[in-house]
């Protein structure tokens, strides 16, 4: 277990601001102790990658942030995930709906709703009770532009979201998450169901988006972590082995396990 080193912070040009912090987080699926004493910061407007071999708990950790585990009985959290820079609140004790309104998520498989492209984007506003057409239109166009999808779909907003290609569907899902102006967007292996070209588009989009929003991404692809993230957490068997800035993790890892994993000796 390595705390984020001061060195990593100093190498950044602008001062880093913690947007969230995981403190002594334990998570149980019934009796299965899936996350063990996780401690890590999430820096504002940075991309943090979670890497590690299958079953290491990286997706489980990601899904703690928007309380997805609450949907199923028998799951239990212990510890804290503090959200907010100035007056941090433990999101594990907040209303899950309130948490999800501040933390968006993009899934492994594109999952547009069985609605038009337009309705897909404004879904998050509709569940908040916003009916004003002018607001919906404005947010819809801005989100689609931010997700680099506007030019491709501006003439077919009434068509079903499922009529788009896989990569477009995933950008639609990103636009949908952006529409509600979340503090953090969680990406759960967002390119694992996409072809290489669509993958490049999504990765470029993530790099662009980090100026607007804080991003947490689970990836099994180490090259992807290098390309898109500024910070990386390496997890193994439910524990956080090492957290540091991405360059350090991949070039001078402190832990032997991290070194073995990033050099491809296991995983």
């Amino acid at each position: 277990m390595v705390k984020p080193t001061e060195g990593a912070v100093v190498t950044q040009q602008e001062p880093l601001k913690k947007l969230a912090e995981v403190r002594d987080l334990n998570f149980y699926y019934g009796h299965n102790h899936a996350l063990k004493n996780i401690n890590m910061p999430i820096y504002e407007k940075k991309v943090t990658a979670l890497i590690g071999p299958s079953g290491c708990g990286k997706t489980t950790l990601l899904r703690c942030f928007n309380r997805m585990h609450d949907l199923y009985p028998g799951n239990r959290y212990e510890g804290q995930i503090l959200l907010g820079a100035d007056q941090p609140r433990n999101l594990l004790e907040m209303d899950p709906i309130e948490v999800r309104m501040q933390i968006g998520m993009v899934f492994q498989k594109p999952n547009p709703f069985p609605k038009s492209i337009y309705e897909n984007i404004v879904y998050g506003l509709r569940v908040r009770g916003i009916k004003d057409k002018a607001i919906l239109d404005e947010v819809m166009e801005r989100s689609l532009r931010n997700a680099a999808l506007w030019d491709e779909v501006k003439d077919r907003l009434k068509e079903p979201g499922t009529s788009l290609s896989g990569g477009q569907q995933q950008r639609l899902c990103i636009a949908r998450a952006l529409a509600t102006d979340p503090k953090i967007i969680l990406f759960d292996e967002p390119t694992s169901a996409l072809d290489p070209i669509a993958t490049v588009n999504i990765e470029n989009l993530i790099v662009e988006l980090k100026d607007q929003v804080t991003i947490l991404i689970v990836t099994h692809n180490m090259q992807q972590a290098i390309r898109v993230s500024q910070f990386t957490a390496f997890m193994y068997l439910g524990e956080l082995v090492e957290f540091n800035d991405t360059m350090s993790i991949f070039t001078k890892p402190v832990e032997q396990k991290t070194a073995d994993y990033v050099s491809g000796r296991f995983g």
């Binding site: 997805m68 949907l71 968006g104 899934f107 498989k109 999952n111 879904y123 569940v127 998450a177």
Partner: peptide, 13 residues
């Protein structure tokens, strides 16, 4: 499941 979770993730009840 993805559709169901997708909707909950948007803050829907």
């Amino acid at each position: 499941l993805e559709l169901r979770e997708g909707s909950y993730a948007m803050g829907a009840t």
